[in-house]
Design a protein around this nucleic acid. Sequence first.
DNA 1: GCCAAAATCCAAAGCGCTTTGAATTTCGTT
DNA 2: AACGAAATTCAAAGCGCTTTGGATTTTGGC
Lengths: 352, 352
Amino acid sequence: MATRKAMNLKMLSEALGLSQTTVSRALNGFPEVAEKTRARVVEAAERLNYRPSPSAASLATGKSRMIGHVVSLSEHIMINPHFADFIAGAGEIYAQSGYDILLRLAPLEEQERIYLNLAEDQRVDGVVVHGPLTGDSRIGILNALGMPFVVHGRCDEEGADYCWMDVNNRRAFHRATKFLLDLGHERIALINGLETMNFAERRRQGYEAALAEAGVALDERLLHSADMVEPYGYQATRALMELDEPPTAILVASVLPAMGVTRALVDLGLRAGEDVSVIAFDDCLSFLQSGYKGSAPDIPYFTAVRSSIREAGKRVAQLLLERIETPDGPPLSELWEADFVIGQTTAPPRRR
Amino acid sequence: MATRKAMNLKMLSEALGLSQTTVSRALNGFPEVAEKTRARVVEAAERLNYRPSPSAASLATGKSRMIGHVVSLSEHIMINPHFADFIAGAGEIYAQSGYDILLRLAPLEEQERIYLNLAEDQRVDGVVVHGPLTGDSRIGILNALGMPFVVHGRCDEEGADYCWMDVNNRRAFHRATKFLLDLGHERIALINGLETMNFAERRRQGYEAALAEAGVALDERLLHSADMVEPYGYQATRALMELDEPPTAILVASVLPAMGVTRALVDLGLRAGEDVSVIAFDDCLSFLQSGYKGSAPDIPYFTAVRSSIREAGKRVAQLLLERIETPDGPPLSELWEADFVIGQTTAPPRRR
DNA sequence: GCCAAAATCCAAAGCGCTTTGAATTTCGTT
DNA sequence: AACGAAATTCAAAGCGCTTTGGATTTTGGC
């Protein structure tokens, strides 16, 4: 072996006959180094396979080129596969900019402390907040710490002083509900996510508003709220269909429980789109693919309000990187409208 | 504000009237410091909220207390939710030991280079290899780099010189196939994962061995192989049932495509467990919960070979941490047998 | 009470990078 | 040719921790 140790700044600068200062500046694009020498330095760095030590750079600058994602362990995020898609989108953006993800699993009640530690330790340059609750305390902490962050979702009304990216859940569910009402449905069930989650609360608001506008009374028995897993959709549907007056349409907060819904309907000898209408919120989960096609090719199975969670991951990552670049600008935020796609699971209600 | 800067070793040692050496040693459990002073140091560190800077420690020791997980971007791992469950299990173990996950998304062809960089940069203390191919080149690289790693799965036959943790896929599929044969099925379809993946190859071997033992000829038309997503199961089943002699039983490599299978059967007016038997490999995905219960409570819907991927994540993490502790021991490996649970989707074949 | 051995503790030298403040060179003017 | 400004380059001081080698204090056996 010729060299025992990995190439470092000192060796590189000696090889070039330049000072470490100049080499460092050349590589980091500072203006006070002549273009000619910069070219020389860059070439040599490339040739000698020099790459700066991240921990040394981090120690010197306080920047880590890492983005923190702290997610709940046994809770409602990691537990479901939405997170995988989100992180796939975000990770793609990070990779392009030379950032890495620092992933930490922790129960919600520890997350404040964790953000504090990550900030003090300068372990990450920014974080994204997953699954915001209504009035989430994490936001205040992060603002106080001066740590750049973007919330995926929101936890308060407009104009709040933080960065977020969200889908217009209220309007999406308003539209979906109104669509069903227009078809003639009046008994419309809502199989919602956990309503401590802000997004679920908004979805319910949209649902309730549409009902109210149509003068349809709210029936509490048609409302379910829980973690968005398959068996939940199944059980909720079984319960709903046992009511004296079962719903003629069901609004489901995710395709995961929606699959449980269809399974329950099959068990009951009912068909979605004929006996009962179903609309799902479709996050375009990759393992279902935008596919989840029905028997008719190119017509989606579910009628759905749809917004890609993977694209959301990308956008959140972009916003965060911008925020890290410019920490003192006004908070960025972005609200996406969901698509509304007609599939095979909706129809006017059956005549009795 | 009293203090502008975060508490560091120097400040702490001055506050204690001790040298930085002693304080550092006291906190890191070295033997050459008196228990009495160690107690004093620990108490003061706690009280003054001292936590060592990770980048400084990393620079000084070369250890980062990070575990690298590099996963394929647009490929077959992150794309499906198995990964989320795996990482949830692993992350739990890491958290207990004070490690964090460094997550990097990259196409397979770049992963060798990435491992090289992670090693040279000393960014991680170990890595786990996801989705090993048969004869995977990543293993050789990692061994050459001397980087501790554990493979989730295997890429070669027994006795290979690396750490791995795997489920006995061959035996699992052998058992499942034999079970169907014993019920009287002869036309058994296999809806497998991508057979470049080593685990899929093993599953097929188990399937083929069982057929051969029973003297049943292999029919290529009953074999499918692709990414394990829902629509794949759907389409494969539609294709299978259009054969002149459709299968009477289907073996599916994951509950994801298995859901597509049942959806296709419903569309065709067939019922799983009556008209066609279905056995799935169940990774106990959390969003389906061990539930995915059928109409009869506490009886699982699918007959399945079952092994929790989350538990696998935990175990792989444990093995890796042990490996990091003792890098020069003999390679650790572990083979788990899958459970075989009888659900509602299997029965003797229909008489014609 | 004495001395070697054991137990503690410390000063200082890195780890590899960035950055300050100063030195040196180059260049446009007069 | 001389001079101040502009353009380059550099030496050295951190960043906060670990660790080597040595200094100092305690201990134990006689």
